[in-house]
Simulated assay, not measured.
Amino acid sequence: MRALVLESYGEPLAERDLPEPTPDPDGAVVETEACGICRSDWHAWQGHGDWVDDRVPTGQVLGHEPAGVVRAVGEDVESVEPGDRVVVPFNLADGTCPACRRGRTNYCEGATALGFGPDAPGAFAEAFHVPEADVNAVPLPDEVSATAAASLGCRFVTAFEALDAVADVGGGDRVVVVGCGGVGLSAVQVAAALGGTPVAVDVRDAPLELAADVGAAETINADAVDDVPTRVRDLVGGADVSVDALGTADTCRTAVDSLARGGTHVQVGLTGDDDRGEIPLPVDDVVQRDLTVEGSRGMPPARYEELFRLIANGRVDPEALVTDTVALGDVSDRLAAMSEFDAVGVEVVTEF
């Protein structure tokens, strides 16, 4: 089968003809219909993550935001069968550890991540294997297209979990989102759907225009104002919730400094080579203004039903974030575009 392999960091992914996967007794093989191209793929392609022992090894098939059709299942699988349409989260869980038993499968102690480790070759390929399919393969409703499901990917579900489960955003909450890439734009749309008032911050006009289209009440070009937190206070009186959707010292500090007293910051963006996992925070300010700092990663597969209901009733439209669909051979160029911040919105591979 055709697949893209990470052979050298920062170099074009190699197109290879690999053996077709076969299902483990508890697994399923899925024919890929669509797969998002995410900034986490870019981090893997750059070789980031060694500072937390999370560097993706060379030889890996990338791609972690897939939707497709089940081709084959193992003898122990009960929840899906060949022909079923499914979406698969990147945070693959075993379903048995203490975290899983508490419903926190996105923090599974025995987890592997689709497309990031040798035990889970990814979905920049014609087909891929899903371990523990009864936990990790989520049936996809007919009304949700493969492209929309792939745009849910890790970005939309991460934004939903961060704002709904972690920050508990509700009616009237002011939410500042710093960085309007895929996860940031998702956070803007989710915040609006939950009844919040989103304020989108970026240094580029194009993603800010898209943010306004998907629900931002206010937008701020950080290059056009002297002080973003002051501007946030002028516009909405400070934020009840802030999200750093990029993962740099500047974006994180901007998000935290934009909070009103008693506010909550949720970190979803991962750092790169400049910060290497360490970002200083104004701890005295955290104490004196009763701020909360949280992290959020992925979402339990069981919560997909909640997202599907939001899509069905029109409260969210993840496909509205899709700005381009591309072929598998275009992935390397699209990753390179992320290095220059030339990509806008969510790009999805639909031709394999």
Rank of each mutant, 00 (worst) to 15 (best):
L307E: 00
T197K: 07
D226W: 02
A165E: 12
G153S: 11
A200G: 07
A222M: 02
Y107E: 13
A187F: 03
L321W: 05
L4M: 05
M1H: 14
P118T: 12
F352K: 02
R231T: 15
V177F: 08
L321F: 07
M1V: 13
P57G: 02
A167N: 06
D324W: 00
D54N: 13
E294R: 15
Q189R: 09
P282C: 07
G153Y: 04
A206H: 11
D54V: 00
V322W: 00
G237C: 06
A93M: 04
E20H: 14
C100G: 08
E347T: 13
L246T: 15
N91E: 12
T96M: 12
T158R: 02
V73W: 08
S296Q: 03
G27R: 01
C252M: 15
V176M: 10
D240F: 05
L291I: 04
E161I: 00
V322Y: 01
R204A: 14
A150K: 03
E294P: 04
V176A: 11
L62F: 11
N221M: 06
R155T: 13
R276H: 02
L62P: 08
A165R: 04
E33K: 15
E11Q: 14
A222D: 09
D226A: 14
E33R: 14
G74M: 01
G195I: 03
A312G: 12
E209I: 07
E15W: 02
I279A: 10
T264Q: 10
T219C: 05
V190W: 01
R104P: 00
L92V: 07
A113C: 06
A187S: 15
A72D: 15
A167V: 13
G47P: 00
V69I: 15
T22R: 14
N106I: 06
L140P: 09
G172M: 08
P207N: 05
A336W: 01
R101K: 13
D213L: 06
A162I: 12
V144I: 10
R102N: 11
L163P: 00
H64L: 04
